[in-house]
Amino acid sequence: MKNFLRFYKWALDVKLDMAIYTIALIFIKCLAEAFCGVYTVNSLTLLQMLLVGFALAFIQHGFFPADKDFTPAQLRGRTIGWAIASNIVAISCAVLLNWFSGFAPWVACVLVFALQAALAAMWVGIHIAGRVDTKQLNQSLQNFKNK
């Protein structure tokens, strides 16, 4: 039962990040299509993006498990590995599944740049924003106990 609850909690965290990645992919797709005057997205594409979103979330939680702390050197290594793996999955799926076919090469550069920006934002959210909040919570907890 304990293992099941641990898995369920892990799945809750992964699903949240999966949703973020999926929405980001769909948003970029919709934006790119809208610029070309197309206002529909294939439902199969949406499903594919959901699955790729899951894969990206799975990779993220594989490289950055929530219950582990890393030294700066470990974090650096894991960040590089995570960035490479995420780029490979996202770009190869976009190419193989023809999500952005028919666009000019410069659009591909913009999309790749947008992907890096999104990954950077995720990294900041995981490693900086969360840690600052945790530090604040623990400081406040100590102040509360010492009152």
């Binding site: 965290d13 969360g130 909040d133 919570l137 907890l141 106990k145």
Partner: peptide, 15 residues
């Protein structure tokens, strides 16, 4: 609260 050792901020506004 006095029996809590540490708090950790988690995704989804959970602690």
């Amino acid at each position: 609260l006095h029996a809590i050792a540490t708090l950790t901020s988690r995704a989804g506004s959970r602690i």
